[in-house]
Protein backbone atom coordinates (compact mmCIF):
# COMPACT_ATOMS: atom_id res chain seq x y z
CA UNK A 1 0.00 0.00 0.00
CA UNK A 2 2.69 2.40 1.02
CA UNK A 3 4.64 1.84 -2.16
CA UNK A 4 1.51 2.53 -4.18
CA UNK A 5 0.90 5.80 -2.48
CA UNK A 6 4.43 6.89 -3.11
CA UNK A 7 4.11 6.20 -6.81
CA UNK A 8 0.84 8.13 -7.00
CA UNK A 9 2.20 11.14 -5.16
CA UNK A 10 5.18 11.14 -7.48
CA UNK A 11 2.98 11.78 -10.51
CA UNK A 12 2.84 15.43 -11.60
CA UNK A 13 -0.88 15.30 -12.49
CA UNK A 14 -1.87 14.70 -8.88
CA UNK A 15 0.31 17.25 -7.19
CA UNK A 16 -2.72 18.94 -5.67
CA UNK A 17 -5.21 16.08 -5.29
CA UNK A 18 -7.85 18.32 -3.73
CA UNK A 19 -8.50 20.11 -7.03
CA UNK A 20 -11.03 18.21 -9.22
CA UNK A 21 -9.92 17.52 -12.78
CA UNK A 22 -12.39 18.33 -15.52
CA UNK A 23 -12.66 16.04 -18.52
CA UNK A 24 -14.85 18.38 -20.52
CA UNK A 25 -13.97 21.98 -21.14
CA UNK A 26 -16.83 24.45 -21.30
CA UNK A 27 -16.80 25.93 -24.77
CA UNK A 28 -19.39 28.12 -26.44
CA UNK A 29 -20.94 25.19 -28.25
CA UNK A 30 -21.32 23.00 -25.16
CA UNK A 31 -22.90 25.90 -23.29
CA UNK A 32 -25.31 26.48 -26.18
CA UNK A 33 -26.23 22.80 -26.28
CA UNK A 34 -26.85 22.69 -22.53
CA UNK A 35 -29.02 25.80 -22.60
CA UNK A 36 -31.05 24.36 -25.49
CA UNK A 37 -31.55 21.04 -23.69
CA UNK A 38 -32.59 22.79 -20.49
CA UNK A 39 -35.04 24.99 -22.37
CA UNK A 40 -36.55 21.98 -24.12
CA UNK A 41 -36.92 20.10 -20.84
CA UNK A 42 -38.62 23.08 -19.25
CA UNK A 43 -40.99 23.56 -22.22
CA UNK A 44 -41.97 19.88 -22.13
CA UNK A 45 -42.88 19.98 -18.45
CA UNK A 46 -44.68 23.31 -18.89
CA UNK A 47 -46.67 21.98 -21.84
CA UNK A 48 -48.10 19.12 -19.80
CA UNK A 49 -49.38 21.55 -17.21
CA UNK A 50 -50.77 24.01 -19.74
CA UNK A 51 -52.74 21.49 -21.87
CA UNK A 52 -56.45 21.92 -22.01
CA UNK A 53 -57.53 18.52 -20.65
CA UNK A 54 -61.25 19.31 -20.85
CA UNK A 55 -63.12 16.51 -19.06
CA UNK A 56 -60.48 13.84 -19.59
CA UNK A 57 -58.99 12.22 -16.56
CA UNK A 58 -55.34 11.60 -17.36
CA UNK A 59 -55.06 8.28 -15.56
CA UNK A 60 -58.27 6.99 -17.10
CA UNK A 61 -57.08 8.01 -20.56
CA UNK A 62 -53.87 6.07 -20.16
CA UNK A 63 -55.76 2.99 -19.01
CA UNK A 64 -58.17 3.30 -21.94
CA UNK A 65 -55.27 3.51 -24.37
CA UNK A 66 -53.78 0.33 -22.94
CA UNK A 67 -57.15 -1.34 -23.20
CA UNK A 68 -57.31 -0.34 -26.86
CA UNK A 69 -53.83 -1.70 -27.53
CA UNK A 70 -54.80 -4.92 -25.75
CA UNK A 71 -57.93 -5.23 -27.86
CA UNK A 72 -55.97 -4.48 -31.00
CA UNK A 73 -53.19 -6.99 -30.55
CA UNK A 74 -54.56 -9.70 -28.26
CA UNK A 75 -58.07 -9.92 -29.62
CA UNK A 76 -57.17 -9.51 -33.29
CA UNK A 77 -59.73 -11.15 -35.58
CA UNK A 78 -61.04 -11.28 -39.13
CA UNK A 79 -64.42 -9.70 -39.61
CA UNK A 80 -64.86 -8.14 -43.04
CA UNK A 81 -62.33 -10.27 -44.90
CA UNK A 82 -60.62 -13.66 -44.77
CA UNK A 83 -57.02 -14.68 -44.35
CA UNK A 84 -56.58 -15.35 -48.07
CA UNK A 85 -58.06 -11.99 -48.93
CA UNK A 86 -55.69 -10.23 -46.53
CA UNK A 87 -52.77 -12.21 -47.92
CA UNK A 88 -53.73 -11.25 -51.45
CA UNK A 89 -54.00 -7.58 -50.46
CA UNK A 90 -50.55 -7.70 -48.85
CA UNK A 91 -49.21 -9.09 -52.13
CA UNK A 92 -50.77 -6.16 -53.97
CA UNK A 93 -49.07 -3.71 -51.60
CA UNK A 94 -45.78 -5.56 -52.03
CA UNK A 95 -46.31 -5.45 -55.79
CA UNK A 96 -46.79 -1.68 -55.67
CA UNK A 97 -43.56 -1.30 -53.66
CA UNK A 98 -41.66 -3.66 -55.99
CA UNK A 99 -42.87 -2.03 -59.19
CA UNK A 100 -42.02 1.50 -58.08
CA UNK A 101 -38.60 0.43 -56.78
CA UNK A 102 -37.71 -1.37 -60.03
CA UNK A 103 -38.90 1.53 -62.20
CA UNK A 104 -37.06 3.95 -59.94
CA UNK A 105 -33.87 1.91 -59.93
CA UNK A 106 -33.69 1.56 -63.73
CA UNK A 107 -34.20 5.28 -64.33
CA UNK A 108 -31.91 6.18 -61.44
CA UNK A 109 -28.97 4.13 -62.77
CA UNK A 110 -28.82 6.28 -65.90
CA UNK A 111 -29.48 9.57 -64.15
CA UNK A 112 -27.04 8.56 -61.42
CA UNK A 113 -24.30 8.03 -64.00
CA UNK A 114 -24.95 11.53 -65.35
CA UNK A 115 -25.04 12.94 -61.81
CA UNK A 116 -21.69 11.44 -60.79
CA UNK A 117 -19.08 14.17 -60.92
CA UNK A 118 -16.23 11.88 -61.95
CA UNK A 119 -18.12 10.50 -64.96
CA UNK A 120 -19.63 13.64 -66.46
CA UNK A 121 -18.92 17.32 -66.09
CA UNK A 122 -19.38 19.26 -62.86
CA UNK A 123 -22.13 21.36 -64.40
CA UNK A 124 -24.31 18.44 -65.56
CA UNK A 125 -23.84 16.83 -62.17
CA UNK A 126 -24.84 20.00 -60.33
CA UNK A 127 -27.97 20.50 -62.45
CA UNK A 128 -29.21 16.93 -61.99
CA UNK A 129 -28.38 16.89 -58.29
CA UNK A 130 -30.23 20.20 -57.83
CA UNK A 131 -33.40 18.98 -59.55
CA UNK A 132 -33.26 15.70 -57.67
CA UNK A 133 -32.80 17.46 -54.32
CA UNK A 134 -35.91 19.52 -55.03
CA UNK A 135 -37.96 16.42 -55.88
CA UNK A 136 -36.70 14.70 -52.75
CA UNK A 137 -37.62 17.61 -50.53
CA UNK A 138 -41.32 17.14 -51.33
CA UNK A 139 -42.75 14.06 -49.54
CA UNK A 140 -43.83 11.04 -51.58
CA UNK A 141 -47.47 11.37 -50.49
CA UNK A 142 -47.57 14.88 -51.86
CA UNK A 143 -46.17 13.76 -55.23
CA UNK A 144 -48.85 11.07 -55.44
CA UNK A 145 -51.54 13.64 -54.74
CA UNK A 146 -50.00 16.02 -57.33
CA UNK A 147 -50.06 13.29 -59.99
CA UNK A 148 -53.58 12.37 -58.91
CA UNK A 149 -54.68 15.68 -60.45
CA UNK A 150 -53.84 14.32 -63.88
CA UNK A 151 -54.24 10.56 -63.39
CA UNK A 152 -57.09 10.56 -60.88
CA UNK A 153 -56.84 9.17 -57.37
CA UNK A 154 -55.79 5.52 -57.56
CA UNK A 155 -53.02 3.11 -58.36
CA UNK A 156 -51.75 4.98 -61.46
CA UNK A 157 -51.09 8.16 -59.51
CA UNK A 158 -49.49 6.11 -56.73
CA UNK A 159 -47.12 4.33 -59.12
CA UNK A 160 -46.08 7.54 -60.88
CA UNK A 161 -45.69 9.55 -57.68
CA UNK A 162 -43.77 6.86 -55.82
CA UNK A 163 -41.52 6.17 -58.81
CA UNK A 164 -40.82 9.87 -59.05
CA UNK A 165 -39.64 10.09 -55.47
CA UNK A 166 -37.74 6.76 -55.64
CA UNK A 167 -35.82 8.03 -58.66
CA UNK A 168 -34.71 11.15 -56.84
CA UNK A 169 -33.69 9.17 -53.76
CA UNK A 170 -31.78 6.52 -55.70
CA UNK A 171 -30.07 9.02 -58.01
CA UNK A 172 -28.45 10.57 -54.96
CA UNK A 173 -27.49 7.21 -53.49
CA UNK A 174 -26.17 5.76 -56.76
CA UNK A 175 -24.26 8.84 -57.86
CA UNK A 176 -22.53 8.99 -54.48
CA UNK A 177 -21.43 5.37 -54.72
CA UNK A 178 -20.22 5.96 -58.29
CA UNK A 179 -18.21 8.93 -57.08
CA UNK A 180 -16.47 6.76 -54.51
CA UNK A 181 -14.85 4.75 -57.29
CA UNK A 182 -11.10 5.21 -57.59
CA UNK A 183 -10.42 7.49 -60.57
CA UNK A 184 -7.35 5.43 -61.42
CA UNK A 185 -9.51 2.52 -62.56
CA UNK A 186 -11.32 4.75 -65.03
CA UNK A 187 -7.98 6.17 -66.18
CA UNK A 188 -6.55 2.70 -66.73
CA UNK A 189 -9.42 1.63 -68.98
CA UNK A 190 -9.40 4.94 -70.86
CA UNK A 191 -5.70 4.48 -71.48
CA UNK A 192 -6.37 1.12 -73.13
CA UNK A 193 -8.88 2.74 -75.50
CA UNK A 194 -12.12 1.61 -73.83
CA UNK A 195 -15.27 3.63 -74.53
CA UNK A 196 -17.52 5.39 -71.99
CA UNK A 197 -20.17 2.65 -71.82
CA UNK A 198 -17.56 -0.09 -71.64
CA UNK A 199 -16.00 1.64 -68.64
CA UNK A 200 -19.43 2.06 -67.04
CA UNK A 201 -20.41 -1.58 -67.38
CA UNK A 202 -16.98 -3.14 -66.85
CA UNK A 203 -15.61 -1.00 -64.03
CA UNK A 204 -18.05 1.49 -62.52
CA UNK A 205 -21.10 -0.72 -61.98
CA UNK A 206 -19.22 -3.86 -60.85
CA UNK A 207 -17.36 -1.77 -58.28
CA UNK A 208 -20.46 -0.14 -56.83
CA UNK A 209 -22.86 -3.08 -57.11
CA UNK A 210 -22.98 -3.88 -53.38
CA UNK A 211 -23.75 -0.29 -52.46
CA UNK A 212 -26.37 -0.06 -55.18
CA UNK A 213 -28.12 -3.22 -54.02
CA UNK A 214 -28.23 -2.20 -50.38
CA UNK A 215 -29.56 1.26 -51.25
CA UNK A 216 -32.20 -0.30 -53.51
CA UNK A 217 -33.27 -2.64 -50.70
CA UNK A 218 -33.55 0.27 -48.31
CA UNK A 219 -35.72 2.09 -50.81
CA UNK A 220 -37.84 -1.05 -51.25
CA UNK A 221 -38.51 -1.12 -47.50
CA UNK A 222 -39.43 2.57 -47.57
CA UNK A 223 -41.65 2.01 -50.60
CA UNK A 224 -43.46 -0.84 -48.81
CA UNK A 225 -44.32 1.48 -45.92
CA UNK A 226 -45.36 4.22 -48.35
CA UNK A 227 -47.44 1.73 -50.36
CA UNK A 228 -49.42 0.87 -47.21
CA UNK A 229 -50.08 4.56 -46.62
CA UNK A 230 -50.94 5.08 -50.30
CA UNK A 231 -53.65 2.42 -50.07
CA UNK A 232 -55.33 4.54 -47.45
CA UNK A 233 -54.51 8.06 -48.65
CA UNK A 234 -54.70 7.71 -52.42
CA UNK A 235 -56.96 4.69 -52.85
CA UNK A 236 -54.17 2.69 -54.43
CA UNK A 237 -55.60 -0.59 -53.09
CA UNK A 238 -53.77 -3.26 -51.17
CA UNK A 239 -53.69 -3.83 -47.43
CA UNK A 240 -53.58 -0.08 -46.79
CA UNK A 241 -57.08 0.34 -48.21
CA UNK A 242 -58.41 -2.45 -45.95
CA UNK A 243 -56.81 -0.73 -43.02
CA UNK A 244 -58.48 2.52 -44.00
CA UNK A 245 -61.85 0.77 -44.22
CA UNK A 246 -61.35 -1.01 -40.89
CA UNK A 247 -60.42 2.14 -39.05
CA UNK A 248 -62.46 4.89 -40.67
CA UNK A 249 -65.50 3.01 -41.92
CA UNK A 250 -66.10 -0.04 -39.71
CA UNK A 251 -64.29 1.39 -36.62
CA UNK A 252 -63.06 -2.17 -35.92
CA UNK A 253 -59.93 -1.88 -33.84
CA UNK A 254 -59.40 -5.67 -33.65
CA UNK A 255 -59.26 -5.95 -37.41
CA UNK A 256 -56.64 -3.20 -37.48
CA UNK A 257 -54.62 -5.41 -35.13
CA UNK A 258 -54.77 -8.27 -37.64
CA UNK A 259 -53.65 -6.03 -40.47
CA UNK A 260 -50.82 -4.63 -38.33
CA UNK A 261 -49.62 -8.19 -37.70
CA UNK A 262 -49.61 -8.84 -41.44
CA UNK A 263 -47.58 -5.73 -42.19
CA UNK A 264 -45.20 -6.47 -39.33
CA UNK A 265 -44.64 -10.02 -40.58
CA UNK A 266 -43.82 -8.78 -44.07
CA UNK A 267 -41.49 -6.09 -42.74
CA UNK A 268 -39.57 -8.65 -40.65
CA UNK A 269 -39.41 -11.05 -43.60
CA UNK A 270 -38.01 -8.30 -45.84
CA UNK A 271 -35.43 -7.36 -43.22
CA UNK A 272 -34.29 -10.98 -42.74
CA UNK A 273 -34.11 -11.56 -46.47
CA UNK A 274 -32.19 -8.33 -47.08
CA UNK A 275 -29.65 -9.09 -44.37
CA UNK A 276 -29.05 -12.63 -45.64
CA UNK A 277 -28.77 -11.48 -49.23
CA UNK A 278 -26.27 -8.76 -48.39
CA UNK A 279 -24.13 -11.17 -46.39
CA UNK A 280 -24.04 -13.59 -49.30
CA UNK A 281 -23.16 -10.79 -51.68
CA UNK A 282 -20.25 -9.68 -49.53
CA UNK A 283 -18.74 -13.16 -49.47
CA UNK A 284 -19.18 -14.14 -53.10
CA UNK A 285 -19.54 -10.89 -55.01
Amino acid sequence: MEANEQVVSGEPMLESPSKPIKIKILTKSTIAIRITLLALAFLTVYAFFSFDYKEIDFGEAILATFANIKAMFFEAHFNHFTFTHAFYQVLITLGLAFLTTIFGAIIAVFLGLLAAENLTSKRVSAVIKGIVAFIRAVPTVLWVLIFAVAAGLGSVAAVIGMTFHSVSYLVKAYSESFEELDNGVIEALQASGASFWQIIFQAVIPSSLTYMISWTFLRFEINFAVAVAMGAAAGAGGIGFDMFMASNFYLDIREIGTITYFILAIAILLEVFATKFKKKLRVNG
Partner: peptide, 30 residues
Amino acid sequence: FQHYNLVNRLSVIENTLHGNLGKKSTIAGA
Protein backbone atom coordinates in the same frame (compact mmCIF):
# COMPACT_ATOMS: atom_id res chain seq x y z
CA PHE B 1 0.26 2.31 -62.76
CA GLN B 2 1.70 2.69 -59.29
CA HIS B 3 -1.63 1.75 -57.67
CA TYR B 4 -2.34 -1.00 -60.24
CA ASN B 5 -5.82 0.47 -60.95
CA LEU B 6 -7.57 -2.88 -61.24
CA VAL B 7 -11.30 -3.36 -60.75
CA ASN B 8 -11.15 -4.92 -57.29
CA ARG B 9 -14.45 -6.76 -57.43
CA LEU B 10 -13.66 -8.58 -60.65
CA SER B 11 -11.47 -11.65 -61.16
CA VAL B 12 -7.92 -11.69 -62.43
CA ILE B 13 -8.90 -12.97 -65.86
CA GLU B 14 -11.70 -10.40 -66.21
CA ASN B 15 -9.25 -7.64 -65.34
CA THR B 16 -6.79 -9.01 -67.87
CA LEU B 17 -9.42 -9.14 -70.59
CA HIS B 18 -10.20 -5.47 -69.97
CA GLY B 19 -7.10 -4.75 -72.05
CA ASN B 20 -9.09 -5.91 -75.09
CA LEU B 21 -11.97 -3.46 -74.62
CA GLY B 22 -10.49 -0.87 -76.97
CA LYS B 23 -10.59 -3.33 -79.87
CA LYS B 24 -14.10 -4.58 -79.27
CA SER B 25 -17.48 -3.16 -80.22
CA THR B 26 -19.05 -1.06 -77.49
CA ILE B 27 -21.82 -3.56 -76.76
CA ALA B 28 -19.66 -6.69 -76.70
CA GLY B 29 -17.18 -4.91 -74.46
CA ALA B 30 -19.82 -3.50 -72.14
